[in-house]
């Protein structure tokens, strides 16, 4: 269907539209990175893509880290143990966390939208104000995001 649509648009001399992709991040009690993790911890998406944060295991939340979203973007926050789907339209770095498990376990993750890392400095500043375990994980994710 996508191929047919692309061919049709090309035949009409129109720019081929980008189709938004769907992604999934799982909130887990036990995962590849250890206890209380988001999998994958770092996700790169295109502007307009949707990410569903799946409450695979109960009693997690997902919400943006204060100060760790691009200018003009909207913060998001789920209810405990509920899935949340977010459409990421503003390019940049988004840090998010589980409010229940940030202090003791640093349960945190990152979405990078597009190739715009212009809020990297603000993101690092925001990470510096988080609890130690979370700070270490966020700084590692930011280094990974910068590495491309």
């Amino acid at each position: 269907m996508k191929t047919t649509a692309c061919i049709l648009f090309a035949a009409l001399g129109l720019a081929t539209p980008a189709f938004a992709a769907d992604h999934e991040v799982k909130a887990l009690n036990r995962g590849p990175g250890g206890a209380f993790v988001f999998d994958p911890p770092l996700l790169r998406v295109a502007p307009g893509d949707r990410v569903t944060f799946k409450a695979v295991d109960a009693n997690h939340t997902v919400g943006t880290v204060r100060g760790m979203i691009p200018a003009g973007a909207q913060p998001f926050k789920s209810e405990r143990s509920k899935d949340l789907t977010v459409t990421f339209t503003t390019p940049g770095i988004y840090g998010y966390e589980c409010f229940v498990h940030i202090h003791s376990f640093g349960m945190t993750g990152m979405v990078v939208v597009g190739n715009d890392l212009s809020n990297m400095a603000a993101a690092k500043s925001a990470a510096a104000q988080t609890p130690p375990v979370e700070r270490a994980k966020l700084e590692a994710l930011l280094a990974q995001a910068a590495g491309g």
Binding site: N29, A35, F36, D57, A58, N59, R80, V100, H101, H103, S104
Partner: peptide
């Protein structure tokens, strides 16, 4: 119980500030 219960099986005795 539900929130603290996520620590079951960890050496934390159900306390988030165990460390």
């Amino acid at each position: 119980f539900e929130c603290h219960g996520t620590l079951k099986g960890l050496p934390m005795d159900f306390i988030y500030t165990r460390g």
